[in-house]
Design a binder for these strands. Structure first.
Lengths: 163, 163
DNA sequence: TGCATATATGTAGGCACCTACGTAAATGCC
DNA sequence: GGCATTTACGTAGGTGCCTACATATATGCA
């Protein structure tokens, strides 16, 4: 059985593993690209920095929602961003539960410096999408399918039906 | 900017992050499904166990190649599998560098027990592919594009061209 | 006003992979 | 046969996310 057959034939893990592998390949390449700028940059910073660049001050939860990740993920990235002096955090005066994040001057500088590279990333993503045709649309359809009925739900009905 | 726009517009991280997120969602659901069997199962075990089920004794490198992951990944999964007595490892008499892995009787048992669930996974993956239409094909096209020219390469030419 | 419930986010530990590095065995060439 | 190079895989540390749990603040209702 070739790898393609393995992947086609073997269910959730095959699909999940494949998605992850492509994701990791892209991320790794991007990490190498940051080296072009001579900067030490953590991939996970991008989402948060970009949101703050676009929208200014935002709460942890808002950033998480915009990125489609958990607040924990943002909370954790935020720690290292603060350590590097790229963002500042403050409690929201209107709601003591919220933590507002904003770019520091240093963060603004870094973002400005990285912007050309980010534009290259974007252009390449567009290029690949054009070349591979319909990837984003396919992923959207996949997401919608899973939203309609989760993987777990589907397996449960089949598995319990078969027993 | 809505999340969809964010994802469409923002390059490598957007695509990479999306792939990862879907992957994680599927993996998490699958983890929950293992609970149906009352077994404690690590997702990363599936690939190796399945390969050994299909092919019998295999080396670390062979499994890694079949799964499309690094040997390190297999080497690490193997450790926990051995701890659980599911596989046995032995040096290959024909090549002292190679480590051959095989299912133990206990491993065979577990695999037999999980097989119905794995079949449900497979059926659901097929169902989703039918519903979402062309996901596997799109991923293949994406993989082929990246194989033809890596993300890094593409960014490099654009970035250095722009400077 | 008080209390039950909801919301926001931080901490801890875990997951499944990766790269970098290291060591041993095998191969190939002189 | 000896040595340079290649191959195989193990170890160490890291990445970027997750769930579970916990704590504090806000909201809504009696």
């Amino acid at each position: 059985m070739s790898q393609t057959d393995y992947i086609r034939d073997c269910g959730s893990r095959a699909l999940g593993a494949r998605l992850r592998r492509i994701s990791e390949a892209i991320d790794l390449d991007a990490t190498r690209c940051y080296a072009l700028t001579g900067l030490k940059f953590e991939q996970r910073w991008f989402g948060t920095l970009n949101q703050l660049r676009l929208n200014g001050r935002m709460s942890v939860g808002e950033i998480a929602a915009a990125l489609g990740v958990t607040h924990v993920s943002v909370s954790q990235a935020r720690k290292s961003l603060e350590l590097k002096g790229l963002i500042a955090a403050a409690s929201d005066p209107r709601d003591g539960r919220r933590t507002l994040l904003a770019l520091t001057a240093r963060g603004e500088e870094l973002v400005a410096r990285l912007h050309p590279l980010w534009q290259s990333f974007e252009a390449v993503a567009v290029e690949i999408e054009a070349e591979a045709g319909g990837v984003i649309a396919a992923l959207e359809r996949l997401e919608n399918s899973l939203k309609r009925q989760s993987f777990e739900d589907r397996v449960r009905s089949r598995f319990e039906e078969d027993r």
